[in-house]
């Protein structure tokens, strides 16, 4: 599905989300262009995960509108929209009782993937799990589960990739592998939105940086216009020291 060049790929118009009396998102306006790689920074409780889950279609906004390629998805994602999205959470989203290959095969079936076994094999290779592909996921370390979770999110070859703290639990080698993968995916003109607490990695792999706090986007700039050496201080200043 292609998007007209002037239309943002993802657009949030005054989106708010409340959980009881708590406002997780407060009238957020955001436009994301196709091929952008966006890092979302912010303290715990800033509403970053809520923002990502709304874009993914896992929860609906309390008010405001969500558009994908100009199409209104405020009241739910249809199948075509879901096929375009890959989602990586801080949870693994894989079944511990099954092997890595069985997990990918199951998700391949759900997405009705044409060449599922070859796709699974290629992804297992990409995330460095080929030699452990037939072991139950329950025997995996946290980092290995996270790598499998990345493979699962890419099984449908999505053009929109949403990542919620993907570096959690990864060792140095796995983190480098993920950085390279993100750079490659960005090079393939996929749209990436990544929540991370790691300011350096976030700026290294992204073309745009957002800082979210108190349910609002407080800072939004292309990475090329950011003084990376002073970004930590800027971040503290934006979110307020008390939240950091």
């Amino acid at each position: 599905m292609s998007t007209p060049i002037d239309t943002p790929l993802i657009e949030l118009k005054s989106v708010s989300k409340r959980f009881g009396r708590v406002a997780a998102l407060d009238a957020v306006d955001l436009e994301l262009r196709a091929g952008e790689s966006v890092a979302v920074f912010g303290p715990n409780g800033a509403g970053k995960t809520t923002l990502l889950r709304i874009i993914a279609g896992l929860i609906k906004p309390t008010s405001g509108g969500l558009f994908l390629g100009g199409e209104d998805l405020t009241h739910g994602h249809h199948d075509e929209a879901r096929k375009r999205i890959g989602y990586i959470s801080h949870q693994s989203l894989v079944y511990p009782e099954l092997t890595a290959r069985e997990n990918l095969s199951f998700y391949g079936k759900l997405y009705n993937i044409e060449n599922a076994p070859e796709r699974a094999e290629s992804l297992l290779n990409d995330v460095g799990l080929k030699t452990r592909a037939d072991d139950a996921v329950a025997t995996y370390s946290r980092g290995m589960k996270q790598r499998l979770s990345i493979a699962r999110a890419l099984i449908n070859d999505p053009d929109i990739i949403l990542l919620d703290e993907p570096f959690t639990g990864l060792d140095q080698h796995a983190a480098e592998m993920l950085i390279n993968l993100l750079i490659r995916l960005h090079g393939e003109q996929r749209t990436i939105v990544m929540i991370t607490h790691n300011l350096k990695i976030g700026l290294d792999v992204s073309s745009r940086a957002l800082i979210q706090a108190g349910g609002k986007i407080r800072f939004d700039k292309p990475v090329s216009q950011i003084d990376q050496a002073g970004f930590h201080d800027l971040y503290i200043n934006v979110v307020g020291g008390a939240h950091y």
Partner: peptide
């Protein structure tokens, strides 16, 4: 729920 797989099922075009 344990590993968040319900979210993955909900994300699928199904």
């Amino acid at each position: 729920k344990e590993e968040g797989c319900l979210s993955a099922l909900m994300l699928a075009p199904l």
